Computed example of a mutant assay.
Amino acid sequence: MALLDDVIDATGGMSRWNSLSRFTLHLSVGGTLFSSAGHPREFKDVIAEGSTRTQSVRFTGITGGEQSGSFQPDAITIESVDGEVLQTWSNPNLAFSDTDSHVLADELHLIFFCGVAIWNYLTTPFLLARPDVAVEELSPLQEGSETWRRLRAQFPPNLVTFAGEQIFYFDDKALQRRSDHDLFGMKVAHYSWAHEIFGGIVVPTLRRSQLRQPDGTVNAKPILIDVEIFDASFD
């Protein structure tokens, strides 16, 4: 597909991505989803280390530097700074229930949420080239003074994502600028910008998630999820 090919080339190229196996991020994650659940600072100034090939992320420095947390599709763990396992949660795939208004109330849910978010954020758009992801190009959409091209992606059930169907938007440089999907019964738009190159891979260092109205317009507030990546490396 021409658009997806352009996007992957603009982000660093599939050859470079396939040569990588690990990523390390220094980042902060916040927003009203976190503060309203009583976790305004648990993911401030943390290190995220993960695999580019399988869904796996380990967060170091959560809860003020006192704990670490690991995300994998079949297990979530929380550990002390000396490696003692404090909590575990097996097979957490049913965590994201639209009927649960306190879905991020405990730290296991919070680690699951952040693991899904960060892994999917970082591996897109290369994730869209997987053979089990169905992608089609949609008509362009006007965003302010810019025209953004769009892809609709259908993800397989064995891939842990926030929604099985998502729409991705790309600017005239073929860089990802927005994605839309449902989340906890809400319609959300995730904006991304401030792209930087780390190890040959282009990464948007700022991301912000806001409520999306049925007509496609986006509310300025509240900021549901706010992600800032300070540094990144790949190997």
Rank of each mutant, 00 (worst) to 15 (best):
Gly83Pro: 03
Ile62Ser: 06
Ser36Asn: 14
Ser15Trp: 02
Ala37Gln: 15
Ser145Met: 07
Phe43Trp: 09
Ala117Tyr: 13
Gln72Asp: 07
Val133Ile: 13
Ser70Gly: 03
Arg130Gly: 11
Gly13Arg: 05
Arg16Thr: 14
His181Val: 01
Glu196His: 10
Ser192Met: 15
Arg149Val: 00
Ala10Glu: 07
Pro131Leu: 04
Gly164Trp: 01
Arg149Leu: 03
Leu183Pro: 05
His181Gly: 05
Lys44Tyr: 13
Cys114Asp: 11
Val57Leu: 07
Ile167Trp: 07
Ala134Tyr: 12
Phe34Ser: 10
Glu143His: 12
Leu86Trp: 02
Leu108Gln: 11
Phe126Ile: 00
Glu137Trp: 06
Arg208Val: 06
Ile47Arg: 14
Tyr121Ile: 05
Val103Gln: 11
Asp9Ala: 15
Val203Cys: 02
Pro131Tyr: 01
Ser28Glu: 10
Glu66Gly: 08
Phe155Glu: 04
Ala129Ser: 15
Asp171Gln: 09
Val57Asp: 02
Val7Cys: 03
Trp148Leu: 13
Arg152Thr: 10
Ser179Lys: 10
Ile229Lys: 05
Val202Thr: 14
Ile223Ser: 13
Phe59Ala: 11
Gln55Asp: 06
Arg22Met: 10
Gly185Cys: 08
Ser97Cys: 05
Asp106Leu: 00
Glu136Thr: 15
Phe34Ile: 04
Ile118Cys: 06
Ser35Lys: 08
Asn120His: 06
Phe230His: 13
Asp132Ala: 12
Pro73Arg: 07
Pro204Ser: 14
Asp45Ser: 11
Gln213Phe: 04
Val133Trp: 10
Ile225Arg: 05
Glu79Lys: 12
Phe198Gly: 06
Phe162Pro: 02
Ile78Lys: 02
Leu20Asn: 08
Cys114Tyr: 00
Ser233Thr: 14
Pro131Lys: 05
Gly31Tyr: 01
Leu3Arg: 06
Asp231Lys: 12
Leu151Glu: 06
Thr54Phe: 08
Leu206His: 15
Pro40Met: 07
Ala220Val: 10
Gly216Lys: 07
Ala153Val: 06
Thr88Trp: 01
Asp172Ile: 01
Gln67Arg: 15
Asp9Phe: 01
Ser80Gly: 08
Asn219His: 13
Asp171Arg: 01
Gln142Cys: 09
Gly50Ala: 05
Phe170Asn: 09
Trp193Tyr: 14
Ser101Ile: 03
Ser192Ala: 14
Phe23Trp: 08
Val81Tyr: 02
Arg207Trp: 04
Leu108Cys: 07
Asp132Glu: 15
Ile229Phe: 09
Lys173Val: 03
Asp5Tyr: 09
Ala174Lys: 11
Trp89Thr: 03
Thr147Gly: 02
Val116Gln: 07
Ala174Val: 00
Ala10Met: 01
Leu128Tyr: 11
Thr52Ile: 11
Glu146His: 11
Ser35Ile: 00
Gln67His: 14
Asn120Ile: 04
Thr11His: 15
Val46Leu: 03
Pro156Tyr: 02
Phe184Lys: 05
Asn219Ile: 00
Glu66Ala: 14
Arg58Glu: 11
Leu104Tyr: 13
Met186Val: 04
Asp100Glu: 14
Phe126Lys: 08
Ile201Gly: 03
Thr217Tyr: 06
Leu122Val: 15
Lys221Met: 12
His190Ile: 06
Glu196Phe: 01
Thr161Cys: 10
Ile118Thr: 14
Gln67Leu: 15
Ser68Arg: 12
Gly12Tyr: 05
